[in-house]
Amino acid sequence: MTDQNTASQKRLAVFDMDGTLLEGDSVTAYLNCLNRNGLIPVDFRKDEQKYKDQFLNGTLDIGFFYRHVLSPLRGWSRSRIQEFMTGMTATDIAPLIYPEGRKLIARLQQEGVRVIIVSATFDLIVRAVARDIFGVSDIIATATEFRNEVFTGEPLLPYSHQEGKALLLKKTLSENGWSLKDSQGWGDTVNDIAMLSLVEQAHAVNARGKFRDYARSQGWELLEFRI
Score class of each variant (00 low, 15 high):
S183K: 02
F211A: 06
N191K: 03
V190A: 11
G187C: 05
Y214R: 11
G209Y: 03
V199A: 02
V199W: 00
A207D: 01
W186P: 00
D192T: 06
I193G: 02
H203K: 13
W220M: 10
L198F: 09
S183M: 06
R212E: 15
T189Q: 07
G219R: 09
S217E: 10
S197F: 01
A215L: 06
Y214K: 11
G187V: 08
K210L: 12
A207V: 04
F211D: 04
G209K: 09
N191H: 08
D192F: 01
L196H: 05
R216A: 13
Q184H: 08
F211N: 01
Q218G: 08
S183P: 10
L196R: 08
A215E: 08
A215K: 03
Q218M: 14
R208M: 10
L198W: 02
S183H: 01
R212D: 12
G209T: 02
L198M: 13
R212Q: 15
E200C: 09
V199D: 01
G209W: 04
D188S: 10
Y214E: 14
G185I: 08
V205E: 09
M195L: 15
A207M: 04
Q184P: 00
E200R: 14
K210R: 14
S197I: 04
Q201A: 13
W220P: 12
A194P: 08
K210G: 04
T189H: 10
T189G: 02
W186F: 15
S183W: 02
E200T: 05
K210T: 13
N191T: 15
G209F: 01
K210N: 11
Q184V: 15
R216V: 15
F211C: 03
A194Y: 12
V190D: 04
A202S: 13
W220H: 11
K210S: 14
S197G: 07
G219D: 12
F211V: 07
S197Q: 12
G187L: 05
S217L: 04
R212L: 14
N191P: 00
A194S: 15
V190H: 01
H203L: 02
Q218I: 08
L198T: 03
